[in-house]
Design a binder for these strands. Sequence first.
DNA 1: CCTCCATATTGACATATGTCGATCTGAGGT
DNA 2: ACCTCAGATCGACATATGTCAATATGGAGG
Lengths: 120, 120
Amino acid sequence: MTIAPVPDGRAELAQAVERCCATEGSSPVMRADAELVARLLKAVADPVRLQILGIVRCSPGMEVCACDLPAPLGIAQPTVSHHLKILVEAGLLTRERRGQWAWFTLVPDRLSLARRALEV
Amino acid sequence: MTIAPVPDGRAELAQAVERCCATEGSSPVMRADAELVARLLKAVADPVRLQILGIVRCSPGMEVCACDLPAPLGIAQPTVSHHLKILVEAGLLTRERRGQWAWFTLVPDRLSLARRALEV
DNA sequence: CCTCCATATTGACATATGTCGATCTGAGGT
DNA sequence: ACCTCAGATCGACATATGTCAATATGGAGG
């Protein structure tokens, strides 16, 4: 995925989500908002990344070491790294270095935001 | 999107979703389930399709005529048809012919399923 | 400083995806 | 029958995406 990073620190995405799913006869979704939301959803819409999120969710503290992923996922290390990068850039995971290892923690709020984007 | 249709009549997808988001220390997501869920999420993870869903949601009866879409979306008719096909195959819309027009109706349950797939 | 190990990045590749113009199909109306 | 219009499909194209081998990076420990 070409990584035009989702502006996550700011509330832009959250606002776009609200505008997209505003209940009642709200104005149809604007393209710019849709682009922003789609970028977040694209990050989740991949089998491997769904598996990663599942593994992290089930791990104590909702965090996992990158070294533990290639085996259960059955894919090469660079590929895992690639997917982790996408999830981090989407704001769904945070990265933290511990010694020579990289740990990734789930950001539940971000996942909630993605879910909210699909509200009717 | 190459259209390996999501098995929507059957409950397979719904079961896959449940297995993927089963709360507590459930077993990590299996690849096959993740593939199924990803196919549904991919259908939603596109700016144009998000806009289409937004328009349908805001329309009376949650239904819309295909003829009313190219203008607000700003894309050509074949492209609209392409996206509608993907949404129908994902089970998010149903198609109905009325005379020479094609009407599309939202399937809220399907959208709920997609949302459920993102539960933590 | 040099080596080892875990990650990240790069380059190359095949495939998937979004887009449009041109054409086919199907339902009315004359 | 014919014509017309809405929609679907086809063909072509550029770009995006997922994958891996090879290589670079960066911390830990001798």
